[in-house]
Design a protein around this nucleic acid. Structure first.
Lengths: 199, 199
DNA sequence: TTACTTTTTGTAACAGTGTTAACTAATATG
DNA sequence: CATATTAGTTAACACTGTTACAAAAAGTAA
């Protein structure tokens, strides 16, 4: 009775092709070129088929957003696991974050751009345990230096992330030279300074 | 022969009403509600009139972007002028930046969101002299501490801005509690820590 | 195989978008 | 007054997300 299984498999296949076709469109022509019709054309199905797999366009974007966070989380984790010292771990994660952002600009744009879905983005980041797990222990050493101890966990976490997100955003807005080596130095100094400030 | 003047005046008046109507729409219903048709309806003119004043919709957004930078620049300037000590100036500007972002979320979103126009945004920021003018002198004291002296101006400037933009962005993505007093403390600590790190 | 049911897929439309070509109405100039 | 210029409108094109409804295909039972 593999008939139902076959159906499910086929359905999953179509779903995958939708996402695949959508991603190809985004990669080739950017987010603005992503439309239900063009996806339908690409997968050679009619439009309502897409709506039988995703409630609406935002649901598709949300899917990509999730995938983006999955990938970023994995990058951070492997970067951390390659280091022992907490300070080096932080630096490695910063580098990984940075590289992810520019190697996957479409993802990053969707994930953190102030435009599109961004509803439960914060929860997603909170779920990136390997982010906070490494940061918090390092941060605890620095609590005493804060003028508002009760907020310092949150503070340091936000500061670290803010430096990263801010550097990336500002660099992205500038576009021209995403791989400019001088920016790598800026990143190194920024995170290095942050770590030194904690010590 | 004030006849030509009257025409020019009238033309300017229509132009202003376009921007005014557009802004009203954005304020009431957000950026997604802004459409040429709805502007045309609001000002009781036909659509092509709008195109005789602005090349396209992006040109209207760009106009708002410019206005946003004008306002931000002014806020920063007055914040700075109320302080003497460079450190206090930095902190005051950070507060002003923060307040501007949340008092004018639509502006900020347009100006720094990774979505919309953002072409010559960087130039706009570079034009905000009162930003760099205050930051750079303070930063020069800290050049020696950088491991890559040749990039440290850029570094510190980017770091300062990044902390601000990052904090604001992350806070905005969270939406819920933009005026949460705990976030004010986070801002204070973040910038305070930055200034201390420079000293 | 035939009749019926369910699931899958397609057609066609609605309401909206940015944009522009072509036309008309109003105004200023000779 | 006729003429040239400007101001403004109508109507369309080519899109967008979304959905109601019909048709076709596939599975099930007699």
């Amino acid at each position: 009775m593999g008939i139902l299984e076959r159906k499910i498999r086929h359905r999953q296949e179509v779903r995958d092709r939708i996402l695949q076709a959508a991603w190809q469109l985004v990669e080739l022509e950017g987010w603005s070129a992503l439309s239900i019709r063009r996806i339908a054309d690409a997968i050679e199905y009619s439009i309502p088929v897409i709506y039988s797999h995703f409630e609406n366009k935002d649901a598709i974007l949300l899917e990509f957003s999730r995938e983006g966070f999955r990938r970023l989380a994995q990058h951070l984790q492997t970067a951390r696991d390659e280091q022992d010292n907490p300070g080096q771990q932080l630096m490695a994660m910063a580098q990984a974050y940075w590289n992810f952002a520019f190697d996957n600009q479409e993802f990053y744009q969707l994930m953190f751009g102030l435009g599109i879905p961004a509803c439960d983005t914060v929860k997603k980041v909170a779920e990136m345990k390997q982010f906070s797990d490494v940061i918090f222990p390092v941060l605890q050493q620095a609590i005493a230096t804060s003028s508002h101890p009760e907020t310092s966990h949150l503070l340091k976490f936000h500061t670290f992330w803010s430096i990263l997100h801010g550097l990336v955003s500002i660099q992205m807005i500038g576009k021209d030279n995403a791989t400019d080596p001088i920016q790598q130095l800026v990143l190194e100094d920024a995170i290095g300074g942050f770590i030194k400030a904690l010590a």
